[in-house]
Each structure stands twice: as C-alpha cells, then as structure tokens.
Amino acid sequence: MAGNTSAPGQSVASRVLAVLGAFDRSHRSLTLTEISDRAGLPLPTTHRLVRELETWGALTRRPDTRFVVGRRLWDLGLLAPIQSGIREVAAPFLQDLYAATFATVHLAVRDGIQVLYLDRLSGRASVPVVSRVGSRLPLHCTGVGKVLLAHAPEDVRREAMSDLPPMTPHTVVAPGVLDRQLRQIRQQGYATTIEEMTLGACSIAVPIRRDDEVVAALGVVVPSLGRNRASLVAAAQVAAQGVGRTLYGGAPPPRGV
C-alpha cells in the first residue's frame, strides 16, 4: 500500500490520476482515507481532488460515504475508438436481432479476465438479467464471456480458469470441463449457457470477428433454449457477421435476420 506523502513537484494532473488509479478490480469502492493512502497523497489534498472529481462526475459518493467510479468516466471511455466504433456499428444489427427474437441482446468485449458490456437491449420476456451497460461479469459463466474466453490468448485462459467461482449451482467450475467447452465453442462457432450466471436465464453467444481475430461477442438471453437454439444461433451469427463486415470491410451487408 502506498505511503501518505506526495512526491515533490508532483503535478495536479498526476495527483488526479493517482486518485483515479486508486480504484481497481479489487478496490471498487473506497473511503476518502483509503483513496488517500492508496494514491500516496495527503488527506487534505485527496479531499479537495475527490470533491472536484465528484462535482465533475468522475466519482460518485454512495450513501455509506464510500466512493465509486462515476458514470461520466464510463461515458468518456466509450469514446475510445474500439468501443465507440463497435457500439455505433452494432446498434442497427442489435435492433435487427431484437426484432427477430424479442429477447435481451448484448454486445460485449473482454476486459482482462472479465466481460465488459458495451450495449444491451432488454427483451420482452421476464428473464432475470444482471448485466447492464458498463458492467463487468465473469467470463466463465456468461455466454458472451465464454465466446471471448474461448478466443483469448492462452495466458488469459489460464488466469481466468485459476478461479472459477460458482454463481449458481449450474456454473461450470471444473477447469477441465470448461476447457473442453471452450474447445467446442471454437469448433462450432457459438457458446451456450443454461442458468450458469442467473437462475432462470439461458444464453447463446457468437463472436464478432476482424479477419481471424475475435474482437467482441454478441449474445441473446432467453428463459430457455429448447427448440429455438438453432434459430437463435443463426440470427445471432447473421447479426455478428453484419457488424464485422461493416466495421472492418467497408460497405454494410444487407440487413435483416
């Protein structure tokens, strides 16, 4: 843990970045004192910077007085070329997929060993869905996450499979079983989950590709796969191919699923 004295001559910008850098996957909410300690800044300086960041919207204070990253930072992050480009291009194809299935549809990318949800359209059916735009969930128990994990570098797969917490009684937590599933996903071109993240929710997901590279995943969440599995996979694949071709191939392909 960092000390509590800032370096001589430290710029205002570096102090602000130190405050924001105090937050990470293991420290999603922090008290003012914890921010000060992790940022290596005096408490009065931290208090002033946090107050300004809160006013701007970069940080949000919860009712328990702990601070979390604010929505404005998420909005700013969406301007990054890979995320903004995929979201904008994918939007009409997500609409097409929703119109064809009336199910909740997701657009997601991998962020380390988590899946980051870039966009979501809520379906008509009453299905428990815990994801939201900007949220992160485990790779191993979500449809889009399994697609992204299946195509991730080997070191990422090893890290992800070193810790497989059970989210429901149906979550796959055996590394060997998950590894076999990932190989099957790469072979068949899609992933499925049955109540692995949330009871009462099943999903199918397919990759969005740039040539041979998987850059994102498109998912559909439904109460049950049943007889609709093949049609859901086909509809999602058409949408994903449309996103990929439009994003990396220039002219958009014919739409409609």
Rank of each mutant, 00 (worst) to 15 (best):
R209W: 11
P128C: 02
E196S: 05
E213L: 13
R62Q: 15
L149D: 09
P165A: 04
F93T: 03
D119K: 02
G145M: 11
G219E: 04
L164M: 02
P252F: 03
G256M: 08
R61H: 03
V156I: 15
G134K: 05
R157K: 13
A39E: 01
V156W: 05
L199R: 14
G134Q: 08
C141G: 00
L76P: 01
R229I: 09
V172Y: 00
G85T: 10
F23H: 03
G200N: 05
D111I: 07
A99Y: 09
V221A: 04
L94M: 15
L149E: 09
R209Q: 13
L97K: 10
Q95C: 00
S6G: 13
R15I: 06
R229P: 04
H151P: 11
E54L: 00
A58M: 10
W74C: 07
T55F: 11
A236H: 02
Q187N: 11
F102W: 12
A125P: 01
T246C: 04
L53A: 00
S224G: 09
G145C: 12
L121K: 04
A58H: 13
Y117A: 08
G189T: 10
G21S: 06
R71M: 11
L32D: 06
S126F: 09
V172G: 01
A174W: 08
I185D: 03
A100C: 08
D212K: 13
A108K: 05
V221D: 02
V130N: 09
